[in-house]
Amino acid sequence: MGLESREERVELSVDIAGVRLKNPVMTSSGTFGYGEEYSEFVDLNRLGAIVVKGLSVTPKEGNPPPRIVEAPAGMLNAIGLQNIGIKAFIREKLPFLRQFKTHIIVNFFGDSIGEYVQAAEELSNASASDGGIHALEMNISCPNKEDGWIVFGTDPKAMKQVVTAVRKTTNLPLIIKLSPNVTDIGLMARVVEDSGADAVSLINTIIGMVVDVKKRRPMLANTTGGLSGPAVRPIAVRMVWEVYRAVKIPIIGMGGIMTTNDALEFLVAGAKAVAVGTGNFVNPLATIEIIDGLGRFLAEEGIYNVNNITGSLEI
């Protein structure tokens, strides 16, 4: 049998929190806009899922510029979660996304437990009446204004409270996006699993800083920003592996994925699906090339179901 016909036999579909994705490759939140921005270059129908830019109940203006700066093999961003708000998203962006044969995962956040709950409620109601939202991804790398601005995702207690509250609010599959800015990511994943999450995604960006030495000022107006891109990949792979050993719920792995080989590292380390973020900026067709590349690699290896490579790491 030729490689091509073997490629056709490879089963790429995966089940994440009860959602059947046609393949395990998605876009990561904040790097693919609301889908339309890349639709000129990328056939959105081919994607396993699209994860949209993080949304909040009320629109957010975001940080002043400069918001981005390059770093070795990566970039820092301090966008400040600028977004059009959930209502405008449902009215103006979701109808466009509904045309495509892919799954839509809506990333959302808040600055208090009440706001997280309200966001989840509004998204669930919109989904119940008109469809088009297949899962929620909750960004917990945000500070809690009601508790000394402590970041939800770095404090097990705050995390448990907010995830439990949102879990009670929504029947949509709930993915929790973990922050890498913690000492023990496995512990965080366990807390999230115990609080009722259906899946976890990781990693969000790692806080960093770049200095303009002539001006003696930080390069970003926000002083610090989140590092992403190939520079973070080894850290992300390590964290996926730690989380894989800590929990049973499925893992969506991300952080510096540019190529098929990069995606495979995450799958072997324990991820069931992967997301491409900064890679889209460098190569808008990265997702498509990775989907094709996975089929080819698995056929060559004689593995006919992508699920069989998840967690296949031997130590």
Binding site: T31, E37, G62, I68, E70, N77, Q82, N280, F281, P284
Partner: peptide
């Protein structure tokens, strides 16, 4: 302004 994506997706160049 500094740009990452150039296509309106990252909100970096405002």
């Amino acid at each position: 302004e500094y740009m990452a994506c150039g296509v309106g997706a990252c909100l970096g160049c405002v």
